[in-house]
């Protein structure tokens, strides 16, 4: 199937929360696309605790907190595809649909269509080079 009401790009906390909210509001044909091989996004790197105090009333690490959301996504039967990277998003001229071009080993390069797209790709740090610190380029850094 290539047509969805909603495509969510990014399977981190924002993407999963958006999917759960959409499902609760009655959107059934939705899809989460995540380029990593697991759900969770940046939280998988945040191994310190302190997450979840508001939502779950307990103190969790980033990966634990992400896992709670991933469990809910699975419980709600919300489809998601891992190892799938979005290469482009385009609004079609002739309709209000959006074309989302993805790549994965399973699909190859394919264009999916959605009435709505949620961008939940998180953010990127600027690289070390952007700070323009002069010097050598050491190994392992």
């Amino acid at each position: 199937m290539n047509e969805y009401s909603l495509i969510i790009i990014g399977g981190g906390p924002a993407g999963m929360a958006a999917a759960l909210a959409a499902k609760k509001a009655g959107v059934d044909d939705l899809l989460i696309l995540e380029r990593d091989s697991v759900l969770g996004g940046i939280l998988n790197q945040c191994i310190h605790n302190g997450f979840g105090l508001h939502t779950f009333k307990e103190e969790l690490t980033g990966p634990e907190y992400a896992e709670r959301y991933a469990d809910m996504v699975r419980q709600q039967d919300i489809p998601y595809e891992l190892d799938t990277m979005v290469l482009g998003v385009e609004k079609l001229a002739e309709s209000d649909k959006k074309a989302v071009t993805v790549i994965s080993a399973k699909r190859g390069v394919q264009t999916l269509y959605a009435k709505a797209v949620v961008l939940a790709m998180g953010c990127r740090e600027r690289p070390r080079g952007a700070l323009n610190i002069p010097g050598y380029r050491p190994q392992g850094v």
Partner: peptide, 24 residues
């Protein structure tokens, strides 16, 4: 082109996995 990309992926699924995201 998307068609050439798909031919490569069909021959070898490892072309369907993006490792370097910045440069695809």
């Amino acid at each position: 082109s998307a068609q050439q990309q798909n031919e490569l992926i069909k021959q070898n699924a490892s072309y369907g996995k993006i490792v370097c995201r910045c440069e695809t």
